[in-house]
């Protein structure tokens, strides 16, 4: 189904010129939206949003959101959803922070070097993803509920590690990962790897096939359950990485730090054209979607529009993005 739908676009090259191919590209509309948004906000704020320091800020903020959204995209492509990303991210962040801090919260007894703590954070993230994957693929629990439960567990465990206190006094060598240029480099490398995995490996093809139609995927010999299992591990791993980037950017961690990340990551996917029904969309769209949300969130705070505007605009955008996607698809039929 997906393959058939894509063919004409892929072969559009034989038609007329590069220009046409660019316009016909499925992410064209999102790209234009992003450019228009940056221009409009730059104008409205009299350039305050496009100063070098603010652009750097947007890039750093988008990196956290972006890597988590990429993990979320794998999950949504199989027609599942991962509500646990903020819980898992906070858990990984607190675990790593509590290993590295020189304060009393240290759980190991001495401050561990980031080279040890970072892999631990990623493993913790992947481990919680493994729990999601087991609940969904082995027990058949709907992903909405399984990840919702795991989300609660993640927050519970994070409270347990830190007693709900904020973590500070982290080793200075950690700051590298959350600042320029490392954070955006990590974000874009993750995007490139995800692109290759989704478009040029058997696993990626399975993800699309399972999301497009699980029954026909099963009948053509794809291990549907195993695919579910792996996408949730990827989702958890990326949530852990998001936690790492956040921790090293702020050099402090509070339990409330990542609240709303599940909403932002789902919104980035929705804006980026990943169909919530599975099997449709690509990583470039997700990257653009994450940056759009980053640009907007940042502009709202730079322009002092307040919380009310932030909530209302975000809410309208997520509904609007999905609605436009659905209307376009129905028209094509």
């Amino acid at each position: 189904m997906t393959e058939v739908a894509r063919r004409p676009e892929a072969e559009g090259g034989t038609a007329r010129g590069v220009g046409r191919r660019v316009v016909a590209h499925e992410n064209f509309a999102i790209g234009i939206t992003l450019v228009a948004l940056i221009a409009a906000l730059g104008g409205a704020s009299r350039g305050a949003t496009v100063t070098p320091s603010n652009v750097a800020n947007v890039l750093l903020q988008s990196s956290v959101r972006g890597v988590v959204a990429i993990g979320q995209a794998f999950v949504i492509l199989t027609a599942n959803i991962d509500l646990s990303v903020s819980g898992v991210g906070v858990m990984a962040m607190m675990m790593g922070g509590a290993m590295m801090t020189t304060q009393w919260q240290n759980i190991v007894g001495y401050p561990v070097s980031p080279f040890v703590a970072i892999p631990v954070m990623l493993v913790v993230g992947a481990g919680w993803g493994l729990l999601n994957g087991t609940l969904v693929s082995r027990l058949g629990i709907p992903s909405l509920i399984a990840t919702f439960g795991v989300w609660q567990l993640g927050y519970g465990a994070a409270y347990y590690v830190t007693n709900g206190t904020a973590l500070m006094e982290l080793p200075e060598s950690l700051a590298v990962y959350g600042s320029l240029p490392a954070a955006p480099i990590i974000f874009f490398s993750v995007a490139v790897v995800a692109y290759i995995v989704l478009n040029h490996t058997g696993f990626g093809r399975n993800v699309y096939a399972v999301g497009g139609n699980p029954v026909s995927a099963f009948l053509s010999g794809i291990n549907v359950r195993r695919t579910y299992f792996y996408v949730f591990i990827i989702g958890g791993l990326m949530a852990g990485l998001g936690g790492l980037l956040f921790l090293s950017r702020g050099m402090a961690a509070s339990i409330e730090a990542l609240r709303g990340l599940e909403l932002d990551s789902i919104a980035a996917c929705a804006i980026g054209g990943i169909s919530l029904f599975g099997g449709r969309g690509n990583i470039l769209g997700v990257v653009l979607g994450a940056i759009i949300i980053g640009v907007l969130t940042n502009a709202i705070s730079v322009m002092h529009m307040g919380h009310a505007a932030r909530y209302i605009i975000k809410g309208a955008i997520i509904i609007g993005a999905v609605a436009v996607d659905i209307i376009r698809r129905e028209r094509r039929r």
Partner: peptide, 18 residues
């Protein structure tokens, strides 16, 4: 519009909070 309930209400949650 056939938007999934999950997304529609996620959006309305934000709007109502705003």
């Amino acid at each position: 519009v056939n938007v999934p309930g999950l997304i529609a209400t996620l959006g309305v949650w934000q709007i109502a909070h705003g």
